[in-house]
Amino acid sequence: MNQLTSHFFSHSLEFLQQQYSSFFAQPIIQLFLQNPEHLKIFTETLDSPSSHNIDHLNETFKIFYYRAKVYKYMCSLIYFFSVDFDKRARKQRERYRMVLDATPRDTGGLIDRIGTLDVQLEKMGELNELASHISDEEMAKALKKLTAKQNLVLTMIFSYGLSNKEIAAYFQESPQNISSIRKQALKKLRKHYMDEVYVRKEKSHCG
């Protein structure tokens, strides 16, 4: 093992990069040598492959590699945990639906309510309108500028957490269309905010 590596250290960097191009093509090596400090350690070791220099390189690389592994580990952890969390939350919601008006003996109650979702949706706009959640005056003004449909879609998305698909089923339109309505509505809100609020603030700052 040591013979192998000591042979490696007896060449110059240019020669190595030609001879072992696939070694230097590895992302971890590329990233390692991108750091000027690491590159300096590496070239120094090639110039004088003393055991002290090699040890130094070994140690630096080990720390670097360890950091990279930890980083990768955490990134995958975050991603997979979030997916898993959502799955669990979904399952929980599916199994334990919140039923407020069923008495324990009322076993037929649940089945009666299936298919009445649309009725609830009809009332959505009035019951839980977005404007009722908002304390910001400008935001309320901006919301009034939206069309009724845009308002309803936003309400469904933000107050009720429905997905594009579910809303599309309600309107009997395509999810893509709902997505674009949502986008347009948010754009309108943002534009109103930018035009009215920020400009005014800027003015008051300058004046």
Binding site: N58, Y65, K69
Partner: peptide, 25 residues
Amino acid sequence: IKLKIIESYEKIAAIEAPNFEEFLA
């Protein structure tokens, strides 16, 4: 997520990395 990361500290600390020579060999 943050809790999970902190809980897995032991696991993270136990990750092994090779040094340069080992990697090269």
